[in-house]
Design a protein around this nucleic acid. Structure first.
Lengths: 206, 206
DNA sequence: AGCTGTACGTACCGATCGGTAACATTGTCA
DNA sequence: TGACAATGTTACCGATCGGTACGTACAGCT
């Protein structure tokens, strides 16, 4: 019984994510989202997190990698929200996407809303090889795929066009949500999506 | 004949816009748009423009003001494109907005496309009091007003919702244009707008 | 010619940027 | 107790940030 330690697995996990790293990621997530990645320096992050700067660079190889980690976490949380709307309406892609968009429309009206972290990161980093941008691009590509798939499930005459139209509405809601704040156009994203869907599907009885 | 200098009026004009200032604004426009405002330092601007740094600060009180000037120029060029589509189809707001969106959809497919300079600036500067953001917000507010007005002219059942829906599609095209590049969802912005419009207008003979 | 105002360039400022070296301290295991 | 991993402390690096003090070249006017 050399290493049958009961928390060995747990230790291995913490080995990869020490306590300081989690605090750093929590703070980075908050500051990056609210003020932008370029606007926040590493000094401000470690100061707010109450940790030392070397702790940041022991857990993340660079600020760019920290930004990418922040976005990977954002990506996970995004799909949680998305899949929650999907599983709430099994077999009904129209209701699924509308449920998701209703949630988006509501969040855009809250004071702290600042759009989609991944969309914003892609705007901040136009270079194709930036690690943060790569996470964003992967997320958007997958979202596009899912939306086109759902549009197909709705029986759209041109599923790819409808899927892309829904993506345009979503991105538009992200942006105008942070541009206009409460009372802005993003409030109507679900309503407009419903109109677009109904105009795109082939009515069975027509 | 004390001051009947033939170039006096011209001089007064140049007084307000010295030669160096125009070169600076040209370079700033190019670099800011392609790489982002925060990504470009004033040193790179003056180096590329081939002028001295004090020339920048004699014409612009700060980098933020230079960014605002860049966006004011962007705003003028935006409305030129918009009004060109409008005047091409007098009295037909549906054709007007579709002509504009066709142009947007085409531009999103070009390699150098990086979205809307004002939208991007608003993402880069979330603070409400930033001079660059103010220019962007003013532009978007006016655009929203015009779109709702056009939607009313189309006879939409809910003109405000349609106008906002068109704005969402436009902003979505800006963003996904720079996220996906050629072949992305922005290509279909005019098609989706046409679907949304037709689903929103009250058919006279129905 | 001499004066004046204007545009420009050289050189520099303090502050902050992202990132690191070296070492002390802590807590948790065996 | 001894080993080890994680964290903290301090001080530092070169580069770049936005911004400026100050001198100069040159124009038009008298």
């Amino acid at each position: 019984m050399a290493h049958d330690n009961k928390i060995e697995g747990h230790e291995a996990e913490r080995d990869r994510h020490p306590a300081a790293a989690e605090k750093i990621l929590d703070v980075a997530r908050d500051l990056f989202y609210r003020q932008g990645i370029r606007a926040i320096g590493v000094d401000e992050i470690v100061r707010t997190a109450g940790v030392a700067k070397p702790s940041l660079y022991r857990a993340f190889s660079s600020k760019d990698e920290l930004a990418a980690s922040y976005l990977r976490r954002y990506d996970r949380e995004f799909w949680e929200r998305f899949d929650k709307a999907v599983t709430a309406h099994p077999g009904d892609p129209r209701a699924q996407i509308l449920a998701f968009l209703t949630g988006v429309g509501e969040r855009t009206q809250t004071p702290s809303y600042r759009g989609c972290g991944m969309t914003n990161a892609a705007v901040e980093y136009p270079q194709a090889d930036h690690p943060a941008r790569k996470v964003s691009e992967d997320n958007k590509r997958e979202l596009r795929r899912r939306l086109r798939e759902m549009a197909r499930g709705m029986g759209a005459a041109d599923a790819d066009t409808l899927g892309d139209g829904l993506l345009l509405l979503i991105e538009g809601a992200y942006i105008s949500g942070q541009l206009f704040g409460a009372g802005g156009p993003a409030r109507s994203v679900a309503r407009n999506a419903a109109l677009l869907i109904d105009a795109s599907v082939v009515k069975p009885g027509a």
